[in-house]
Amino acid sequence: MTDGQLSWRPAKADVRSEPRLVRTIIIALTVLFLTVFVVLPLLIVFAQAFSRGAVAYLAALAEPEAVSAIKLTLIVAAISVGLNLVFGLIAAWAIAKFEFPGKTFLITLVDLPFSVSPVISGLVFVLLFGAQGYFGPWLQSHDIRILFAVPGIALATTFVTFPFVARALIPLMHEQGTLEEEAALSLGASGLQTFFRVTLPNIKWGVLYGVLLCNARAMGEFGAVSVVSGHIRGETNTMPLLVEILYNEYQFVAAFAIASLLAMLALITLIAKTVLERHLDEGLQPRDD
């Protein structure tokens, strides 16, 4: 509604909508809240990172400890996204396309990592693989390191980020049903041909969406990783862990420089997410036939 429309009956505003004053206040409150709690902190991260200039910023990122943290974060994210891509696809396939007893329970189980505190998720792995854990002594006697090493961090991250891919795919695959797969089968396609030529192209945007969110969380995960990492400098610190350590040591520029990388990841994720959601909406549109 425009002002022009309002002017021909100034005494009474359009009854179909809230009064203009109310709308203005609600919108202003939202913008104010987002500015104070989201935009401002983000700006401060970058302001702090560059507070001693670009040279100090780049130097902080080139520190061996920082480089090792970035590398570790990328490795862990690659492992957990890879695993969750496969498991998420399988889980979503099972849930969306088959009917079997216990299906509701399985859906609940997929969501479990979201409802458990990440610290608890980390602790589970300590209980399993720690020196006093179930598999600890056996692992020690075979000289296999899981806790306080890359495998433990990757496991904890995979656990925490498991629901993303499955969650993105279940409604999409459910909505699309099995008709196209049946058509492919009746035309003589094998199971694999059906998957790669029909199913996957139909869900590719959903897969990308799930991978994107999964990756963002994998790189940013703090709680679970903190419990299993052991904080060995230059070895088992991921980027979020390093930010905390540097901050506690009053190395603000270095801490915020790493933080700014994570913030940029968040921004890129946000943009990519918006683009993907547009594609996803197309895929989810009910067939009008």
Binding site: L179, E180, E182, A183, A184, L185, S186, L187, G188, A189, S190, V198, R287, D289
Partner: peptide
Amino acid sequence: AGERQVGFVFQHYALF
């Protein structure tokens, strides 16, 4: 289904 050489036309077409 794939080995029967049967052409199936679905109610809602199920075009890819």
